[in-house]
Amino acid sequence: MHSPFTPTSADGPRTPRHAFREALHGTRRTFLAVNAIPLAVSVALLPATNLASVRVAGHLTIGVVWGLLQCVLFVTSTWWYELRCTRACDPLDQPVTSGTPQPGNRGTSGGGNRHGW
């Protein structure tokens, strides 16, 4: 589904809003693709083609190795996603959002207490 933020002109000035949008969407798309493709392979391709049963080392089959790699890939890509959002997206968010209240927070609720709860 198309996400219609305020339209950007190819020649127009790049506002923080546009930069934020592009950074966020690009990061999200990459994370999704990196994890969805291996998942599609593991749930659709491997069982349908019997590839999962092929042994690669000792008793290890392609199916098991693929699943373990999926886990490693997921944790690594989550770390990358968080890092990218923190470095690229959150700073772009700051100039626009600084000084505005947090949605859903009332009064002092948003700041946390000294116990960190």
Binding site: F5, T97, T100
Partner: peptide
Amino acid sequence: FPDIEYTMATDTGERPAAASP
């Protein structure tokens, strides 16, 4: 909607009256 979406993406706290939580 662009404002709603921007609010959801950026946590600005701007929210149209029709969509009050």
